[in-house]
Design a protein around this nucleic acid. Structure first.
Lengths: 341, 341
DNA sequence: TTGAAAGCGCTAACAG
DNA sequence: CTGTTAGCGCTTTCAA
């Protein structure tokens, strides 16, 4: 593997000149630069990332801290990770994946102290998140996907659950649904302070008020089925459903079918924050507010790297709403004679 | 950040002794080692990954080369990536994600020459894969997920499509289905030499022979719907379907329903290599041969790291079959009076 | 059982 | 505009 010394020798210059030519850290005469670049070309030279990082104290690596969940990762997360990796690459960085248990601050501390990465993008942030406190304390540059409860001056990108839930309620209300049910993630996730669960629950209460009824639900079709039955028994007037639980949504649809009712004629089911590819698998395909997974991934690493490069950037704390895609699971609350729907 | 010199000073030894104590590269007196470890503890010392890598010429990083596909990545890939990251961590390595366009050998060459990683795990290997040739040529240690056509002495882990498809055909045959349809990925993927498409097609031909009818299909519900209609028209006797195309499977189910037929009473649909979480979303939930995604991820990095550590390991070329999970989309070919099915 | 010292390949003063 | 040189924090001979 050709080194900088090889290039310098071949171009008849000092290694430092090669370095300067390579990084543009200092002006280099056109002729010299040309010779250097040619030499690099001929040798197939690529700077050694480790040496460069060691000498400059900047590894140009960033880590993506991504949680080991019992729940498992979904397609949304996959999209997110892809976008993050791609963006890092585009900006000349490498993305390393740190799979850590959610509560394991010690492991995270160990990892960050190794000097392998300049900063981290951290997923699945909870309202009270010990990992964030640790990052603040140790001064590791970071960008959150999600955000803590004590909204301080740290950069984040998150889904705008408030507006999304509001829009979801409005969508169903506009279709004439007067009582609206909300099916959230598990109670455990809510109690653990999982941002989406907590924020969506509050937002639903604000938006639907007395017209709303809300339930927690484990992330599985079976749980979805049970919860719908229970909710339908408790509040038979509910014809519009907002389901923020991808796996449960299939169960909800199944329970409605088993009940002898139809979607969307009798019940409308609106899925929130579930991926396109899952929404199109159900019968009927789910009308959905899609999460901006790729945008979040891109933004997260972009914001982090901006900070690392010391650019004078304003603090980014961005909320992105989910985008509505109409499919076949929502419709008017009561059949309108003559419309055929 | 404490360095090795700090530790050495505090423990009254030479830096080299600290290094030896840390890595066990040379025996160190118990008392000395204790002092050193205590000093490390007190300083919160963590060896600098970059320096270590530079000096030892072993970064202890491995890359996962994962493709940017138009098709998009699925849940199977997500499981795979998770498992790979976790395994790498367990073995004291870091996993770097390289998102590269499938054909871009140049980019890959550049990346591997940076000396950031000791080896790579490479996904989505095609029968004739320029990237593999490049890795062989440049001597970069690697492990494939999938395999090339010219099966040489390179390590790989792959799904055993041959046995899986055979088992799938057998499953339907045992249920009394006499004519069996196979819905593959797109023709383009087959023509491009995408391993799964090609191997499964061959395997189906071998297993089903004249009883089988096979079709390519783009990865979308819409395409699935069309293909089923076309196939049903061309071969009305087909009652058993094998679908190796996750996204198309929803379309197949929808087309059957629209046709006024039922699953599994009239048609059996057996999904191959699709993830659990997608299989449970459809109506009815799909009986599926699940891909061993996590095993492949784990195995891929394990095998690679074994090689990197120079362990005397036999060449690993492992085929893992998909595992059958019965759900509700397959059943006997004709209703048996009295069985209630 | 331990130490001293020469690098690993690069960056960034400092000096001209 | 360019060169010299002292590190970055570690590993690994070589020597004791």
């Amino acid at each position: 593997m050709a080194s900088m010394a090889d290039v310098a020798r071949r171009a008849n210059v000092a290694v430092s000149t090669v370095s300067y030519a390579l990084n543009g850290t200092r002006p280099v005469a056109k002729a010299t630069a040309d010779r250097i670049h040619q030499a690099m070309e001929e040798l197939g030279y690529r700077p050694n990332a480790l040496a460069r990082g060691l000498a400059s104290r900047r590894s140009r690596n960033v880590a993506l801290i991504f949680p080991m969940l019992e729940r498992g990762l979904g397609l949304t997360e996959m999209e997110f990770v892809s976008a993050a990796a791609e963006t890092a690459g585009d900006l000349g960085y490498h993305l390393v994946l740190w799979s850590t248990p959610l509560g394991d601050t010690d492991l995270l501390t160990k990892l960050t102290r190794q000097g392998l990465v300049d900063g981290v993008v951290i997923m699945e942030v909870h309202l009270a998140d010990a990992r964030i406190e640790m990052l603040r304390r140790t001064g590791v540059p970071f960008c959150m996907i999600g955000r803590t409860g004590d909204n301080r001056d740290d950069p984040f990108a998150d889904i705008d659950f408030e507006s999304t839930i509001r829009d979801a309620v409005a969508h169903l209300t506009a279709l004439g649904h007067e009582r609206i049910g909300f099916i959230n993630h598990s109670r455990a996730s809510f109690d653990a302070g999982y941002g989406p669960s907590v924020r969506a629950a509050r937002a639903f209460e604000d938006a639907a008020g007395a017209h709303g009824i809300s339930r927690f639900c484990d992330d599985s079709p079976t749980a979805g089925r049970q919860i719908w039955r229970e909710m339908n028994a408790a509040a038979p007037g509910v014809t519009g459903l907002i389901v923020m639980n991808e796996r449960a949504s299939a169960g909800v649809l199944a329970a409605i079918a088993q009940h002898g009712a139809r979607v969307p004629e009798d019940f409308s089911v609106l899925s929130v924050a579930s991926s396109e590819r899952v929404a199109e698998m159900t019968y009927p395909p789910l009308t959905t507010f899609h999460p901006p997974a790729a945008e979040l991934g891109r933004l997260g690493v972009q914001v982090l790297i901006d900070r690392l490069e010391g650019r004078e950037v304003p603090l980014v704390q961005q909320l992105i709403p989910c985008r509505l895609v109409l499919r076949d699971s929502t419709g008017p609350a009561t059949r309108q004679p003559g419309t055929g729907n």
